[in-house]
């Protein structure tokens, strides 16, 4: 059997150099990464990359930085297993393999001129942060911006300083809630769904973007529909097992959709009749 070298393999990685590592929580770490020669990753908010470590494997990870941040991009990784565990051992100056960006991100151009309601549960803030910072960097192109954040306990909050900064801005409205408070917590307590009824919005000009654990979607969407937000104005980002990112390996298939190519961002009207989606 011959082994030919390929110049155009979809599996070829780019070398990413880790510029900065920061521990975020007990299990989440933040990485800032640059491609060779400062090449742009050229992603859309909501897209993901395959992060590769030879000898360990690859894992799909959302790009958490906005494309408006140039010269490098950022990831936030939760340690849950092999690849994510190995990533947590890396130091500044180390290299990782990067493939992508992959998938359909948030339809930012369609959002322009409209109001945005961002709903992030747990790790959902990671992809949403890319959108939020993109919107903030192009602030006048969008209408009202409201952010709802939810997580289990105050200790699990990600991007605290940045969230504080968003909170201080007069052109962004922000609301946090935790399932279980600690003595220092000053925000809301309860599920993220409890924050939605109180929001004042114009449904026909609002786009709601929802990212969180699988269980969250049904409940949040129900509340959003009660607010009469049109189905195609509700965007979700779905997580599935992925191996190739190329719409072939089959792991991420949601009925007739391939999450890695057709998603991970879907509008609710597209998936509401797709039984495996939510």
């Amino acid at each position: 059997m011959k082994k030919l070298t390929l110049k155009d393999s979809e599996y070829e990685i780019k070398k990413g150099k880790i510029l900065r590592v920061r521990k975020m929580t007990a299990i989440e770490t933040f990485f800032e990464i640059a491609l060779p020669g400062g090449e742009s990753l050229d992603h859309e908010p909501g897209q993901f990359v395959e992060v590769s470590l030879f000898g360990v494997g690859e894992a799909p990870i959302s790009v958490t930085s906005s494309p408006t941040k140039r010269g490098s991009f950022e990831l936030a990784v939760r340690n849950v297993g092999k690849v994510t565990g190995a990533l947590h051992k890396l130091k500044e100056g180390d290299e990782v393999g990067i493939r992508g960006p992959f998938g359909k991100g948030f339809p930012v151009r369609i959002f322009e001129g409209n109001d945005l309601l961002c709903v992030a549960g747990g790790l959902g803030i990671v992809p949403l942060r890319s959108l939020i910072n993109y919107v903030i960097d192009n602030r006048r192109d969008f209408g009202k911006v409201e952010i709802l954040l939810g997580c289990k306990t105050p200790k699990d909050m990600l991007f605290n300083e940045e969230v504080d900064e968003w909170n201080k801005r007069l052109d962004v409205k922000l609301n946090c809630t935790v399932d279980k408070a600690d003595p220092d917590w000053k925000g809301n307590v309860g599920l993220i769904t409890s924050l939605i009824p109180g929001i004042n919005l114009k449904p026909e000009r609002t786009f709601a973007v929802v990212v969180g654990p699988p269980i969250m979607y049904k409940f949040v969407i129900k509340e959003l529909l009660k607010k009469e937000i049109p189905e195609r104005h509700i965007l979700v980002s779905l997580e599935r097992h992925m191996k190739c990112g190329l719409g072939k390996c089959g792991h991420c298939q949601i009925n007739n959709f391939y999450c890695c190519q057709d998603g991970p961002v879907f509008s609710y009207d597209k998936i509401k009749n797709i039984p495996e989606a939510l």
């Binding site: 059997m1 011959k2 082994k3 030919l4 070298t5 390929l6 393999s9 599996y11 070829e12 990685i13 070398k15 590769s52 470590l53 030879f54 000898g55 290299e95 990782v96 393999g97």
Partner: peptide, 17 residues
């Protein structure tokens, strides 16, 4: 692909045919 993982991430994408 075959790879060399020591200091940097180096790979050689191949096709067996």
């Amino acid at each position: 692909a075959t790879y060399h993982a020591n200091s940097s991430q180096k790979m050689n994408p191949v096709v067996e045919c």
